[in-house]
Design a protein around this nucleic acid. Structure first.
Lengths: 121, 121
DNA sequence: ATTATTGTATTAATCAAATAATACAGCGGG
DNA sequence: CCCGCTGTATTATTTGATTAATACAATAAT
């Protein structure tokens, strides 16, 4: 599950984000059963309560659902997942352009910057 | 100074970031005197101590310097500012590409996505 | 039926960020 | 000289995230 935590945002928020990405990217498949709360907490070296809090939020987002004594599962609503994926890509893109703009690169220049970066490696 | 705080990262970190951007973008000019700690705190509706903490970090970064009883000033080292600007643009760009990759868009697709976004509006 | 595993709930303790209320030291202008 | 403005320092309090240690209820498997 290789998580990298940045110290400046609450862990449970980062957990929500990371698991969301795992679902959006298909790393956690549609309808797939997640590891148990305790397992996930162990893996990520986080307190079970913290993991539970993150999973609760994901359930609010309808990205996962719970079978009370059986486990938690990725939603089977593929459309929903796709919508989240697009929404996420949109956010990333808009934020990128906005941030670049805030330090003086307009959209065209931002694109140029990315292209140069590709060339570099 | 219009700041928008996101609740999930410590305010002083966000202050450092925002002021850094103001300097990088030239909104705070080279060598310009900053508003006093108390003023900045008022403007941003933050406790003076929190602002002070942020300014201390900016001083560690050499982006500002202090005249003890006179005020704080933007560095006059334009090269340094430029280096920070490039570093920041690099970070933004690399992070953008990484994040897009994590949800299944390779570099080419990420670029396409940005271009489409421009077309939309 | 017992056992292990599931999610869930509760309560206390810890830790860091942020606020709050001051106080001090140095300089400059009226 | 003194008042007002700088930055800086100190101490206490509040708030929220996180950890910690349990406990309970429901189900599936043995």
């Amino acid at each position: 599950m290789n998580f990298k935590f940045d110290n400046n945002t609450p862990i449970y928020i980062q957990l929500v984000e990371q698991i969301k990405i795992h679902i959006i990217s298909g790393h956690f498949g549609v309808g797939e059963r997640l590891p148990s709360v305790r397992e996930l907490a162990m893996e990520t070296k986080v307190n079970p309560n913290t993991m539970q809090k993150a999973l609760l939020e994901l359930e609010d987002l309808k990205l996962i659902y719970t079978e009370r004594t059986n486990g938690k599962f990725v939603t089977t609503d593929t459309d929903l997942i796709l919508r989240y994926k697009k929404q996420y890509a949109d956010e990333l893109s808009k934020n990128f352009l906005l941030s670049m703009k805030s330090i003086g690169y307009d959209e065209k220049q931002a694109l140029e910057y990315l292209k140069e970066l590709k060339g570099d490696k």
